[in-house]
Amino acid sequence: MPGILVVAATAEGALSRSSLELVGGARALDASLGSGVSAALLGHGLGSTGAAEALHQHGVATVYRVDHPALTAGQSDAYLAAAEQVARTAKPDVVLVGADTVGREVAPRLAHRLAGALVTECTELAVEGGAVVVRRQAYGGRALATLVVRGRPAVLSVKPRSLDAPEPAPVAGSVVDVDAQIDPNALPTRVREVLREKSEVGLEDAQVVVSGGRGLGGPDGFKMIEELAAMLGGAVGSSRPPADAGWVPISWQIGQTGKTVRPALYVAVGISGATQHVAGMAGSRTIVAINRDPEAPIFGVAHLGLVGDYREIIPPLIARIKELKAR
């Protein structure tokens, strides 16, 4: 059945939020295209995880399932082979892939194998005048490109946290098991080990994010940032310079290169507001900027601005928040 195919790669078994975001994007496209949404559910030991049911719950009628022991964390070659097999079975017009670690490798290669059109790192999907139209950031977030995708299949990778996760819309669904015939010994790459870093758990899902930039002056400045984040019940992020300098783990980095966040509150401390960074946080509901330089571009996107030295502002802020919360 032609239509929109969502690639839901799931090393952990459960359906990820990114996969659900793709389902939301697919359903919005389908409202205009009307050709149906299906999903490629790829992983191992999927029978008991409820992932297929979760897809049905969110409006995906047909789930093509590839359950194979080679589909483990980071094993891009195996996910590519499985996605290709499903795409050749489902023959979709549009394929949506999450632009995460695996998806960044899978999407271009899948488009090449299917001789389709390719747009990576999309942030918006739409149908305009019957054509598939996508938007993506360009030039480090300084510009927004609008592209009309005419080639089929259109393979689109979508930047995580760009689309909203959809409301449930249960449908009666079916699961089609697809035999991907993956030979683990023939794969050109093999993940030997997954090294988990001290990362801000759920940075992308946090409702409050406090981020530090070059203006903190060094790794010690982040102690104050972490304290403020803890007081606000939020996560810690950073702009690119602290991550590049090794002050903080690279997984904390927010921006065009790095994570995209859309929390209810984003506090930028000592961050100048380079477009690179703004690209990853401009969708936040309330943005507070603390910076010594009143001309810093961050004030161009902030809703509330505090001009001054963060070392003098944050301690009384933490104390006052503590008081207010204790009431």
Partner: peptide, 26 residues
């Protein structure tokens, strides 16, 4: 063109509605 046409590349205008909170740091 690989089946992809660039229709438009726009520079988004920042609204610039920042409200500054004044006074000493406290």
């Amino acid at each position: 063109d690989g089946g992809v046409e660039v229709r438009d590349v726009a520079i988004p205008q920042r609204t610039g509605k920042c409200e500054f909170l004044t006074g000493d740091p406290a």
